[in-house]
Every structure is written in C-alpha cells, then in structure tokens.
Design a protein around this nucleic acid. Structure first.
Lengths: 153, 153
DNA sequence: GCGATTCTCTTGAATGTTCAACTAATTTGC
DNA sequence: GCAAATTAGTTGAACATTCAAGAGAATCGC
C-alpha cells in the first residue's frame, strides 16, 4: 500500500486479472496431475522424470550437472539432492570429468533408461489428455509463442 | 517403448513437443520468480500469499477450509498445514461454524490484511514484469482461453 | 607464479508438500 | 432411531525444495 500510494503503479486490468487466475489454476492442476500420475505409476515425481528424460536425449546419455540444472531450470542444490537419490536407485551414475576437476557428469544407467522407457507412455498419455487433447492446433502454437515470450531476456 | 509398441499410442507431434518444452520452462521459471520474490520481500511463499489474497476478497474476509482449498487447487492437508503456520503468525484466525461442527472458517486478521496490503504491490510488479509486460493484449486473451480450456471437465 | 576471484558442486538445516491414517460431525437408508 | 456411509478437517512421517554456507578446483590479474 505505502509503496503504491506515491508511485505510479501498474495494477492488472480485468483481462489480465482473469488470465492470471485462470493460468494459476490451470498450471497448478496440471502440475499436480503430472506429479500424482508419475508417483502412482512410476514411483517418482515429475522433476525426477524430467532428469531421466533429458539425460536420455543427451550424447552418451550424460550431461554435466550445471548444464542439466540449467536445462531443467533447477537450482544446483535441488539437482544435487535429486541426483543423490537417483544414484541410490541406480538409475543414474556420477562420473568425474577428465579435464576439469570441478565438473561432475550425471549419466543415465541402463536401469534408469529401462525405468524411463516404462514410465514414458503413461506420462505422455497424461500430458496429452490433460493438455493437448483440450487445445486446438492453433492454441498449441499460441501456447508455444506465449511461453517463449515469457522467457525473453 | 515396449508398452508403446503394441498399442495404438498418441505421442506428441513436433509442434506439441516444442510447446510442451517451452511451457515447462516458462512456468517453472515464473513460479520460481514468484516464490523467490515473495520470500525475499514478505517472508512467505506464493502459496501463502494466495491464501491471504483469496481471503481478503471473501465476505468478512473468511472462508470455509474446504472452499478455500478448492479455490486454491490445494489438498485439504496442504491447506491445513499452511493455515496452522499462518495462525501462528497471527495473520489468520480459525473460527468454528455455528451450524456444522465439522466446518472450520479461516479468517484473515487485521494483521494478515496489513501484511497482504504491504506485499501486494511488489508481488503484482513481479507478475507484470515477468508475464504481462512480455505479452500482447491478444496473447493475454489467448492465455486465458488456453488456461480455461485446460480446466474443462 | 601466486593471491584473489570465480566456478562447480555438495551439505545440512529449515521449510513446504504429499500421503495415508485418523478423529469427529453430519447425513443417508431403512 | 440407528448403523453405515459420507464429509470436514487434522496429524505425523516421508519426501522434495530452498537457502546459506562451504569445499575444492580452475582461472584471472598483475
């Protein structure tokens, strides 16, 4: 209040307000759906699935921790804790870098790949049913553009 | 993979794949921005801000727990834990319902209202800068329609 | 070369969320 | 009326994430 009294201050207009409410609800529901579904069917949260998925597409199924964190929009700490758990499960292996002693590589194990391959169809079905089956192709393109715009800078 | 071999199975096409990646990154970044910002400036996560915000708009600044949970897309348990913390902070008070002994009302205290009013301008600024300043009015309308479509059923 | 800085990653504590189990109150079916 | 089912909310344990602090390795500046 005090900060807003004496400064010109941009509030949300009605259209923005409606969009914001709808977005918050929709994204919260989708996130919960993804997490619940993966937890039930594959015993891991969505964040862990994404780690496996990103590694599976990387050369030799391995990435440097920092690059992986950046790709996943994860903090280094969050990734470090997650990788520790995934190593315990034998889904991921940590390798030292040959050139740079600071760098650790996270690598998908065969077991991790197996788990991912088993989890993927159910997960994708959830994504399709919760999101893409509800949108027109035009809306899918719009969603990509909007999301890209949000990532400017 | 194996599960997908013998069943007709809808995967994501290229456009959906691109939209999905962009959406995941954008929504994760936005959520982190909102949480970090509110934690820094007001000492609470976004979920707690939303509790205060929803109550502030309700008649007499109070809602039944179940209704509040539904409005926030929160589990009863999550809301219960959160309200306990907010009661400790004296930002919220819990009242018994006169007619139904199962029902609890969560009510915003004057102190809670004060905190919300102080937090709001900074928070809205974050929302505007992170989201609405990056979208055209057309995209704002599209975002609302897409979010609404995601909530069908 | 070598101290200061930066970079990469980890750690432990504090916090928030989920899940399953539970209590208590109300409503339903008969 | 009353047992069974439903509804509202809580609890504690397990788990995930954040945050601040820090360790170790490479790089920068001079």
């Amino acid at each position: 209040m005090s900060a807003q009294k004496n400064e010109s201050f941009r509030w949300l207009n009605d259209e923005e307000q409606a969009a914001w409410r709808a977005y918050l609800t929709a994204s919260a529901r989708l996130q919960q759906q993804l997490d619940r579904d993966l937890q039930q069917n594959s015993g891991m949260p969505h964040a862990y699935y994404m780690i496996l998925a990103m590694l599976s597409e990387a050369p030799d199924r391995g990435m440097r921790m920092t690059d992986l964190a950046e790709l996943l929009s994860s903090s280094p700490s969050r990734l470090s804790h997650a990788i520790r758990k995934l190593v315990e499960l034998d889904w991921i292996r940590k390798d030292a870098d040959a050139d740079d002693g600071r760098v650790t590589w996270a690598c998908l194990t065969d077991e991790g790949m197996r788990v991912l391959v088993e989890a993927a169809p159910g997960h994708v079905t959830t994504v399709v049913e919760s999101l893409f089956d509800r949108l027109t192709p035009t809306q899918v393109a719009q969603l990509r553009e909007i999301s890209t715009a949000m990532l400017q800078d």
